[in-house]
């Protein structure tokens, strides 16, 4: 009996071992190596230098990721709500439509945006025709193009976790709200919204983190004024002379992401949502 328990005591470690080994080998070791590299030829000064040299890019990256996350939330919550509560038999089809863009590659999806948004393209022509845009206004090479594409590319990451949270809500709780004379808005605010917060939190992280590290959208749809940290890293990492500072910048990117996540966790509280 005791022997069986002792044997079972090994099971969690055995299950943990492959994942831990994977993370140590492919995350911790490279991270340590990156950290060491970031201190070469300048030590901590590399950090202050990259921060001062790239302050605008760092701030822009944070704001773009934040804006994309907000955009995805504003678009994604109602979408997930409708699928979860009104989807009926079409629920699976609607969910499939949400993930449908993922069946084409990320790069192609972004290039498709370029074809839509260029100066003589359909979107700009329509906006000019409706006088929303002046004759020389354009979309490519603007903040809107990059934020819009980030929002579009990461929208499913927001919709799916929110959908799962909403789907799990016991309908009897909503009925109880109505029985207690709460208006539909009050029921939503006091029952549905709090219970869907785990999905909102998970979706926001899944959107914010990759959006902050992205460089494809800014590279293809932006101009020099839309560069993100990822663009600076991608452009320079191969060149030996830049590697210490670019390694430092990679750590700064991690700090940007972590600060966003921590601020968000503090704002929402994590006890109920993780």
């Amino acid at each position: 009996m005791d022997g069986r328990i002792a044997r079972r005591g090994w099971v969690p470690y055995a299950l943990l071992a492959p994942g831990l080994a994977w993370l140590v080998l492919f995350f911790v070791v490279p991270l340590f190596s990156l950290g060491r590299k970031s201190l070469e030829r300048g030590g901590l000064h590399n950090y202050s230098k990259v921060f001062s040299d790239n302050a605008a890019v760092i701030g822009r990256t944070f704001l773009y990721a934040l804006a994309a996350t907000m955009g995805a939330l504003v678009l994604g919550y109602p979408l997930a709500y409708v699928i979860a509560t009104r989807g009926g038999r079409a629920k699976n089809l609607l969910l499939a439509l949400v993930v449908l863009p993922f069946f084409t590659t990320y790069l192609i999806r972004t290039i498709a945006w370029k074809v839509l948004l260029f100066g003589d393209g359909p979107v700009v022509r329509f906006l000019r025709f409706t006088h929303v845009f002046g004759r020389n206004s354009e979309l490519l090479g603007t903040h809107w193009a990059v934020i819009g594409a980030l929002t579009y590319n990461f929208l499913p990451f927001m919709v799916l976790p929110i959908y799962v949270s909403l789907e799990k809500i016991d309908p009897r709780l909503l009925e109880a709200g109505i029985d207690l004379y709460a208006t539909p808005i009050a029921t939503f605010r006091r029952v549905t919204l709090p219970l869907s917060m785990p999905g909102v939190f998970a979706g926001s992280l899944l959107t914010f983190i990759p959006a902050a590290g992205d460089f494809v959208n800014a590279e293809l749809l932006g101009s020099d004024g839309q560069r993100m940290i990822g663009n600076i890293i991608a452009k320079n990492f191969e060149k030996d002379v830049f590697r210490p500072k670019i390694s430092a910048l990679s750590f700064v990117l991690m700090v940007v992401i972590l600060s966003g996540v921590l601020l968000y966790a503090r704002f929402l509280g994590t006890e109920d949502v993780i």
């Binding site: 370029k114 260029f118 393209g121």
Partner: peptide, 18 residues
């Protein structure tokens, strides 16, 4: 004056006449 300092993606910007 300069819109973008770019790698190979400049061909796409030229193709689209932006």
């Amino acid at each position: 004056q300069i819109r973008k300092v770019t790698g190979n993606s400049y061909t796409e910007d030229l193709r689209l006449r932006d």
